[in-house]
């Protein structure tokens, strides 16, 4: 069995303030390298909180989270930023591309903060864009792309640094079915070539593509 990429041990995240909200209530989860996991659940179930904690954007209030075996709950913000840049790739529902920068610049953005050697940055970014089938739109502005193309740029940006974990938050939420299928095919390819994926979605079609499915409700995880 391959090494765990994500290891959640009794993880809790409580938002203070009367009354305190237990968004995650003692979650245990192990995602091994190369796994493709989908997380489903109704809105307000703690999906987003789980994603934020997994993405090191939020700190758990209890328990521990080991990323590639490195404990992250109590490390410095600086170290967490480095882990975020080097080991995690994000794909968001709203794509989050910088509208005034070219497609290539948007992909290069991820290489800036993650320690990719300067000489390799452009080559890597072009290779990633070629792989998602957008090598002809390298210098285009993101605003001229379709939704599906934008999300493919976002995927290229997420994987250009060679992360251990790809986190996707409703990646098809703003896409039509054809574009969704293209993005899901891309995820399948990434999975096939060994990338670990965690996809948060409420779309059963998307969820069905995953090898392993997890349901979250009221801050608790259950395997499906």
């Amino acid at each position: 069995m391959s090494a765990p990429v994500v290891e959640l041990v009794g993880l809790t995240r409580t938002f203070p303030g009367p009354p305190p909200v237990h968004a995650l209530d003692g979650v245990d989860l192990v995602v091994r390298a190369g796994e493709y996991v989908s997380v489903v659940g109704p809105s307000g179930s703690g999906k987003s909180t789980l994603l934020h904690v997994l993405g090191l954007l939020d700190r758990p209030t209890g328990g521990d989270y080991l990323l590639d075996g490195v404990p992250t709950s109590t490390t410095s913000e600086r170290h967490r930023a480095r882990l975020r840049g080097g080991r995690i790739g994000f794909v968001f529902q709203q794509f989050h591309l910088l509208p005034h920068r070219s497609v290539l610049d948007n992909v290069l953005l991820a290489t800036l903060y993650s320690g990719v050697p300067r000489a390799e940055r452009v080559d890597r970014a072009r290779a990633a864009l070629e792989r998602v089938g957008l090598d002809h739109r390298v210098d285009a502005a993101p605003t001229t792309l379709s939704g599906g193309e934008r999300q493919r740029v976002a995927v290229a940006r997420a994987v250009v640094t060679g992360p251990s974990l790809l986190l996707a938050d409703e990646p098809t939420g703003n896409l039509d079915s054809v574009s969704s299928a293209a993005v899901m095919d891309l995820f399948d390819e990434l999975h096939a070539s060994g990338l670990t994926l965690v996809v948060i979605t409420h779309d059963p079609v998307v969820s069905a593509r995953a090898q392993r499915r997890v349901r979250i409700s009221d801050g608790l995880l259950a395997e499906l």
């Binding site: 320690g115 990719v116 300067r118 990633a128 792989r131 250009v160 060679g162 070539s193």
Partner: peptide
């Protein structure tokens, strides 16, 4: 058959920070 090679990012030897 799916390609097994990691096209999405080879490891690098010596990185450049921001």
């Amino acid at each position: 058959p799916p390609r097994r090679r990691r096209w999405w990012g080879r490891p690098w030897r010596r990185g450049d920070g921001f």
